[in-house]
């Protein structure tokens, strides 16, 4: 138990914070119900995938600035492919877009390993490139999405044996998120590859001496990041029904949630659960601010301030740790 608390203490604290925020939300808006929670889960979905993408590379000791641009590109690719196409065609589009994210992510990693240019520069250049590619695919928001894909994240799914009252609080978007993340993350976390990702982030030298193939592991970490970003892009298309070529605020949000989620920016520490909970916390803060009838633009400022403060705090902690 003490091990669990020491390792997961931060996440437990975040959960507590989340519950407090939920209570606050109910106080602000007594009518806040399962439907609102459903829309929260839907809003969280792209953020959560962006954060997952960032988390993998940060754990491996890197950073990926191209997350948001990658989401934009995958989103417009999916939207433009599905526009006017048959419902069945989407069955092909989804794996295609995911594979595209994986390959482009691997390209990030490969460029870092081969050119030895620092990750931050390579992913910055890739940010430009992916953004440009997104504009080439669609120069304005547009495209479409298969109905079944849109339906996949709206409403709830009846689970036999659960009372409707509980069921209503399990929106499909949340289930999709949990399933997608678990299917990739849990086997990864338990595999030697997962350990290797933690190892190169924690101490590259020790990992090298322990026989970890450092370069290969780094490329795979970026490839996984690309895969999660592609999930995020699909989620964008699914929730809006279209694709937008201009990247959203997902880069800064992903870094902030990673820091808030207890993943050290130096690498090697933390897990996926913390950042995901952190995303819910950040989104719920936004909801509360909106419910308090604060100007949405002011909300954006407050949100930005929180994110910058969190990132500064994270950098400060990392600096302290190094001394």
């Amino acid at each position: 138990m003490s091990h669990f608390l020491r390792r997961q203490g931060w996440v437990v604290g975040l959960f507590a914070l989340l519950i407090v925020l939920f209570i606050a939300t109910r106080i602000i808006q007594p009518g806040y119900g399962s439907g609102d929670f459903g829309s929260l889960a839907r809003a969280v979905l792209p953020y959560a995938f962006a954060v997952a993408a960032q988390t993998v590379v940060v754990i491996a000791g890197g950073i990926d600035l191209s997350v948001a641009a990658m989401m934009a590109l995958t989103s417009v690719t999916a939207a433009s492919m599905m526009a006017g196409a048959s419902e069945e065609y989407a069955l092909f589009v989804v794996p295609f877009v995911l594979a595209m994210g994986f390959v482009l992510g691997a390209l990030n990693g490969l460029l870092i390993v081969v050119t030895r240019v620092p990750d931050i520069v390579v992913t910055l250049a890739m940010l430009f490139v992916l953004q440009g590619a997104a504009l080439l695919v669609l120069d304005a928001p547009g495209g479409g999405a298969a109905e079944w894909l849109k339906a996949l994240i709206s409403g709830t799914v009846p689970i036999p044996g659960l009372p409707d009252a509980v069921d209503a609080w399990l929106p499909k978007a949340l289930l999709v998120l949990i399933v997608c993340l678990c299917v990739i993350w849990i086997p990864l976390r338990r595999s030697r590859l997962g350990l290797s990702i933690y190892a190169i982030g924690s101490s590259e030298l020790a990992a090298f001496r322990s026989g970890v193939p450092v370069k290969r592991t780094r490329i795979i970490a970026y490839a996984l990041s690309g895969l999660f970003a592609a999930f995020g892009g699909l989620a964008l298309t699914m929730s809006t029904g279209i694709g937008a070529p201009i990247p959203g605020p997902y880069l800064l949000a992903s870094v902030a949630a990673v820091v808030l989620g207890g993943v050290a920016l130096g690498g090697g520490k933390g897990g996926l659960l913390g950042p995901i909970v952190a995303v819910f916390v950040l989104r719920l803060v936004r909801t509360d601010l909106t419910l308090l009838a604060i100007d949405p633009n002011v909300t954006a400022i407050i949100e930005g301030l929180i994110m910058v403060a969190v990132v500064m705090f994270g950098a400060f902690i990392t600096m302290r740790g190094r001394q």
């Binding site: 350990l195 290797s196 924690s202 020790a206 322990s210 090697g268």
Partner: peptide
Amino acid sequence: EPSLIPDLDVLSNLRL
């Protein structure tokens, strides 16, 4: 300098 990965537990280090 010990080559155990600092952020992994001992068991994971053995598995690695």
